[in-house]
Write a protein that binds this DNA or RNA. Structure first.
Lengths: 407, 407
DNA sequence: TCCGTAAAGTTCTACAACACAACAAATACG
DNA sequence: CGTATTTGTTGTGTTGTAGAACTTTACGGA
């Protein structure tokens, strides 16, 4: 509970690191000092430590526009993390820089439903080996995390259930052991939670314009995340945000989860595809195309999806008062068609909407498997939260990236 | 952003204060030191300051059971706050001690629907004057807060809308000015949020057994609060938790809020009373009585209420993963009747319920108008969060309780 | 009754981290 | 080429906690 000088230093190290990463362009020590209410001398000392530990890096002195001694631009150091994803459509392993660059990646696209966890995770380990080899020229990895489309325990080591994969009680760390990952302890995360991180943050430590929103991922199932101040709400046991199983109509069709009328049964990939009369594999693009061609069946399917989303999301907005809704996956692909009817539904159904109407937007679809990036970002965020722990690790062991950070 | 030595001290002052208040019995300095990972010397210094500032108080040395120098028991000091409540059924003003004792209170029970805000608030000011006079023998007041059954802005100064009172855009601080309240700046809060605080904390700074739960208050309307780690989730604009307007059935009856099938239309006081065939004023007690007498109409009403609550609450639990549901107001009075069917509904409808089933319990009904107590607790919590600010105020001004704390 | 033991509280010194101010370095401007 | 200006560094002072020694106040046993 009580904190000491060491905690003060830890906090300020984190503050300085975040100030550097959050800046739109590499700032000098002096600029960081201005933005943090710390003095130049304190910032200088802390930055020196962070540079020595590889968390930050000094750039070449930029061409000085104004007069005075030119500052040394500071940017993210050479640290990365391994982010992975297994979902119904395939698997990905990706190495992400502290600066937000993808250093290496490998993926397999295949319908994994029904395949055994051991086989799939073994194959994923192969991808992980490949990307780690590609970057392992002395580059330390801060951690490894695996995104899964299901309910994961707070301890982040057991996948309790992934309905659409058909997996229950899987411990991926039994296959992806620290030994097999070059000393990294694997942690798990929910796919939608981790994908939502790529909306909240543009890069590790770099907040995006949206910090509070409800993320709705359209995959085979409907995942969700409630993001408050840039962090997904985990809930008491870690399985908050499952908006796919919010009830749209108690007399609606029964769901795999045991309930009736879940949102997933209205706007899940297969359900939407069936109603629109298109192939499920590429629903989003096909529905867009059909609607553009004037296909009334596709238009009706979109309208029906907007209605169901309107009911479920207005309940959610009423409960958690979120100012924005971000649609991902196939729902993101048809977000421009959904926006108008959905916003109208929210306006009608949400008590406070005539004061502040929640906005609806699409998750930028340019990056495939955002959850893999989010998984790496989650690991790098832990480093940013406690740079002192990382520095201690780096200075103790000569070749870093050895042991995982403690909880 | 960056923090200094002063922040260190502020944090540790808060830690020590909370350690004293949270202890089941008045602890000595040494016991506090053990529980906070601070040294005896540091705790001693901080406690001395807090005692000098009146935040903590030293008791008479207790009769020593074991050998060694007897410790000086520490407990809450002589500081209080003014908590008020206006809802459909009446108004209350209450002065609450830092120790959690009610030092004075006054209330008026009357149906206030349709009465003008100015008249009601003027009458409330009279009650406030009365209770302040009762305790004002040099007792400093940390703040004043008013609980209202409606949507309040984050800045806590405007009541945007209270549907059941029929009030919109009211600024109670125009009537309850700092001048009229002995220098205290009035802040507002949502009735259900503040009532929920009395569940989360047994007394200011003293956490109760339930720290994460969904609070559902049964008044004329249905209020709600999502409590995470002891604090009501406010949401981006401050109006989170409105579970009364979560949709039970999109084809259900239309609601005052503009939507259809809101929970409030199924289990609100008037609706429940009408279905059970009893008087609205005392629904809870009457329904219990009728059910005990074997009245089938009352039993059917309870069953129907449990069904509606089951649909709405399972959506909420699915979204925010809360381990408990606390029923207040008339719903609390029939909680024992609702529990079994409601828990069964949750078991069926919530995806994760077969792992951890949320429990349903009633808010202890012994204290009337819990929101007034919660309002005072909210003010005292601000003092606990920044005891250094309070100490500075007390030492600057000789007669304390003058100005309100800043942001 | 007296001394040893034990626990609480206080005092003193050491140490760590930040603030502040002075200074050195590097550049543009006149 | 000197001056103004900004960056980064260095040295001194202040603040707050840690740790150890010391004092106080009791119990318990001889």
């Amino acid at each position: 509970m009580g904190i000491s000088q060491a905690a003060l230093r830890a906090t300020n190290l984190a503050t300085v690191t975040r100030a550097v990463l959050a800046a739109p362009s590499p700032p000098s020590r002096a600029r960081v000092a201005e933005g943090t209410s710390l003095t130049r001398s304190t910032v200088s000392r802390l930055v020196d430590e962070l540079v020595a530990g590889g968390v930050l890096a000094e750039g070449a002195p930029d061409l000085p526009a104004r007069r005075g001694r030119p500052g040394i631009p500071l940017s993210a150091g050479r640290v990365a993390a391994l982010g992975m994803l297994v979902n119904v459509a395939g698997m990905t392993a990706r190495v992400l820089d502290l600066g937000g660059s993808v250093l290496a990646q490998a993926s397999v696209e295949r319908d994994l439903r029904g395949e055994s966890p051991d086989a799939v995770l073994g194959e994923l380990l192969g991808l992980a080996d490949r990307v780690r080899a590609e970057v392992s020229e002395g580059l330390p990895l801060a951690g490894a995390r695996l995104a899964l489309p299901g309910v994961v325990t707070t301890g982040s080591d057991v996948l309790l259930v992934a309905p659409n994969l058909g997996w229950t009680d899987v411990r991926p760390a039994d296959v992806l052991t620290p030994g097999a990952l070059g000393g990294l302890a694997l942690r798990l995360g929910n796919e939608a939670d981790l994908a939502a991180r790529t909306v909240a943050d543009l890069a590790p430590g770099r907040p995006g314009p949206l910090r509070d929103f409800l993320y709705v991922s359209g995959e085979v199932g409907i995942g969700g995340a409630v993001v408050v101040d840039g962090r997904p709400l985990s809930g008491r046991h870690g399985w908050a945000g499952e908006i796919g199983h919010v009830c749209v109509d108690p007399r609606g069709p029964s769901c795999r989860c045991g309930s009736t009328g879940c949102l997933e049964r209205y706007v899940g990939r297969e359900e939407l595809a069936a109603r629109a009369g298109v192939a499920a594999a590429d629903v989003g693009r096909l529905v867009r195309q059909r609607v553009a061609e004037g296909d009334s069946r596709a238009a009706e399917a979109v309208e029906h999806a907007a209605w169901a989303l309107g009911v479920a999301l207005s309940s959610a907005v009423t409960l958690i008062d979120t100012p924005a809704i971000v649609l991902g996956g196939h729902l993101g692909q048809i977000a421009d068609l959904l926006r108008e009817p959905l916003e109208a539904a929210l306006e009608q159904r949400v008590l406070s909407a005539h004061r502040v109407r929640p906005t609806v937007c699409a998750h930028d679809g340019s990056v495939s498997s955002p959850a893999a990036t989010g998984a790496a970002m989650a690991e790098l965020d832990e480093l940013l939260a406690r740079p002192d722990a990382w520095l201690a690790r780096v200075t103790d062991v000569d070749v870093p990236g050895g042991v995982a950070a403690d909880g």
